[in-house]
Amino acid sequence: MTDPSQGVFAISVAADLASMQIQNLRVYERRGLVSPARTPGGSRLYSHDDVDRLRRIGELLGDGLNLAGIARVLVLEEELRALRSRDRRRRSRTG
């Protein structure tokens, strides 16, 4: 299977997969909520991880959060994943 963080989707495909408008993806990129890869010519390439993140942004928008709130939630969710991963590694070492 391909690396889920590798950019493979054009912006139109990513927008369709995330059920969003293309212009929204551009806004989310400007706000730092998503960072698609770029081709040498400058076209955006969205990964499976990016599409998952866009779907999460859509969920949070649906819950009534604004973009600043969404940015904070995404950071906190990433910190939580990292802490859980670190905890699992510690537990596996101690038996």
Rank of each mutant, 00 (worst) to 15 (best):
M1T: 10
T2P: 02
D3W: 05
P4N: 15
V8W: 02
V8C: 06
F9E: 07
A10S: 12
I11Q: 08
S12H: 05
S12T: 12
S12M: 07
V13T: 06
V13E: 08
A14I: 05
D16S: 11
L17Y: 09
A18C: 09
A18H: 01
M20G: 10
M20V: 05
Q21Y: 06
Q23W: 14
N24Q: 15
N24T: 12
R26A: 07
R26F: 02
V27N: 11
V27T: 12
E29H: 07
R30Y: 06
R30Q: 13
R30N: 09
R31A: 15
R31W: 06
G32Q: 10
V34T: 12
P36V: 11
R38A: 05
R38K: 14
P40T: 12
G42D: 13
R44W: 04
R44F: 12
L45R: 15
Y46L: 11
S47P: 09
V51Y: 01
D52C: 13
D52W: 13
R53F: 00
L54P: 03
L54H: 02
G58Y: 02
E59P: 08
E59V: 13
G62E: 09
L65G: 04
L67N: 03
L67W: 02
A68F: 04
A71T: 06
A71V: 06
R72S: 13
V73C: 03
V73G: 01
V75I: 15
L76C: 04
L76P: 01
E78K: 14
E79T: 10
L80G: 00
L80N: 15
A82N: 05
A82Q: 13
A82G: 09
L83H: 07
R84L: 02
R84H: 02
S85C: 06
S85N: 12
R86A: 11
D87E: 13
R88Y: 02
R88F: 07
R89W: 00
R90S: 05
R90G: 02
R90P: 00
R91G: 05
R91P: 00
R91Y: 00
S92Q: 07
R93F: 07
R93Q: 15
G95A: 13
